[in-house]
Design a protein around this nucleic acid. Sequence first.
DNA 1: AGTTAGCACTCTCGCCCCGAGAGTGCTAAC
DNA 2: GTTAGCACTCTCGGGGCGAGAGTGCTAACT
Lengths: 337, 337
Amino acid sequence: MLTERRATILGLVVREYVQTAEPVSSKALVDRRGLDVSSATVRNEMARLEDEGYITHPHTSAGRIPSDLGYRTYVQSLMAEEPVGVEEQRTITHQLHQVAGGLDEWLSLTATILAGAVGNVAVVTRPRAVAAGRLRHLQLVELNAETALLVAVMDDGRLRQRLVPLRQPATQTQLLERAARLNARLAGMDGSGARALASDLPDADEAAIARAAAELIEEPRGAEETYLDGLSRALRQPEFADPDRMLDAVARLQAYRLRTLLEGAADAQPGETRVVIGSELAADQMQDWSVVIARYGDPEAAGTVAVVGPTRMAYERTIPRVRYIASLMGQLLHDMR
Amino acid sequence: MLTERRATILGLVVREYVQTAEPVSSKALVDRRGLDVSSATVRNEMARLEDEGYITHPHTSAGRIPSDLGYRTYVQSLMAEEPVGVEEQRTITHQLHQVAGGLDEWLSLTATILAGAVGNVAVVTRPRAVAAGRLRHLQLVELNAETALLVAVMDDGRLRQRLVPLRQPATQTQLLERAARLNARLAGMDGSGARALASDLPDADEAAIARAAAELIEEPRGAEETYLDGLSRALRQPEFADPDRMLDAVARLQAYRLRTLLEGAADAQPGETRVVIGSELAADQMQDWSVVIARYGDPEAAGTVAVVGPTRMAYERTIPRVRYIASLMGQLLHDMR
DNA sequence: AGTTAGCACTCTCGCCCCGAGAGTGCTAAC
DNA sequence: GTTAGCACTCTCGGGGCGAGAGTGCTAACT
């Protein structure tokens, strides 16, 4: 049973440990956090908290550190989220509007901003259609006599391109006509529709183009690129003082390893923020890590924003900031279309 | 004066040190490299080499390690390049042809392959026109009644896109006509040409589109994205056993810090491979690093391939592999157009 | 019954010391 | 010019040790 006083103490242990990265002693809590009981009482309560599994001992004569259950309880019941201040909001939106280039730069910038705001590794994935994509429009551009560049605009505004070899050389004007013809029949189609149509077309080149279009439509959602930033900042945390751990962290965070981590939240709704702590992570080897994760966008184009860091993380700051960035991204993505 | 024997010894010291990462003793050289003189003779020669600045002493009773001058001499006169074997060539081209997606995935894959081939950090920059770009073709796609997506195909085949707000709502058909009209006048233009034309156009929307096209053409060559891989592998090198050094390395290698490093080789010719060793690097704080760098492509679209690692690097392997990858990329890039 | 002072006990951490080992530079002989 | 021999230097790892921090328990207090 978590009495009110024990809950308070657990909360203070988490906060103190997150701040100092040192095991928290009973004395430190009384002295620096203004508990109006003696350290002996705190010690008794701590022993109870340890029995119940909320905190642990690195060794006999050291202070306490929160267990995964301790963090979980803190996040769910004890913590008061620290709202994103007006000033901070302004800074973030300001930075976010700096972007001159396309979607990719925007995502990469977002990762940087988020990493800066929470002092940990931030990951952003490219938005992609949850439903299978449809073709909005295609275009052909002459590259040389035997090759055309096929550009497909998807219904989520994403561009995909592919080279198409031509049997019959064609001029740009001919290509434009051909694109117009194909557009009339292909617009709004999904991959299988385009494929079916391709087999109906008498002209070999047009059929090839339609087939290429079908492949572009079905393309595995584009490589799910992830943008990551804040690595060197996060590595400054004392938990990585040991070079083996640091190396381990770098290797794990190479973007492709993160995929599986983030996939777990693919079913989350935009607006929802999930926190996965330590042993709750499916990945066995990431017991010391936590992930704060949110989806942004809508079913037509949704992506993931996440912060990854040691379980000793300032959850009350991280969670609202991830949520805020995700909602901003959702808005901006919506405005783009 | 570097006698032949001293040159041999210097070469052996470099090779041995690169391999073992331990200071090289006179005895080790005689025992393991089959020198047919005694260790005392080697010691004498080493003392000379040290006087002349080719090698140094970490401390009095330790073996020798090459200085930057030592590496430089090795690379320029002593080393025999280890050619990329047929089998390795096959593996590399095979991997390189795996790519399904666009340019970006291709570049990122190349970085991975190169990093794997040399066991160090590999960096690849996006190819960009050295000369100012020209417009090949533009296309307009209806997004909604008030917004169109402007897609510009550059003469190097690169796509650029931008949203253009419309005063007059337009259907896709109208947009197609408009694109055809604009293409007739804009194709082949550079930025200032497009800008000049924009101010001549009577229609406000068309002028806006032409202006947007001008900006796309002049767009700062696209953010010069760099693709980096092999970090965690490189960090396994013993020089990073100290966590401070490791942290330092990670921070430096965040892509944006690398720019200045790579810029130094912007004037290199494709085919040329440059090696910059330790103190030769302009960046003061990278004294322990070397860069092997090559340009690929042609003036119309050129990029950089590089390997970055500790000065203790297997130059005879790295240099030919960087050169090989650069030439492959040049070919592939050429074939794409 | 809950709280607290006091105290013995435990464990870590940093420090020093020291011996083993590796490698050099020098000298003297070949 | 080369080499054996040797004294000398410096690093590195391990053991020992004392200081310090923190706990758990007991007994007294409210």
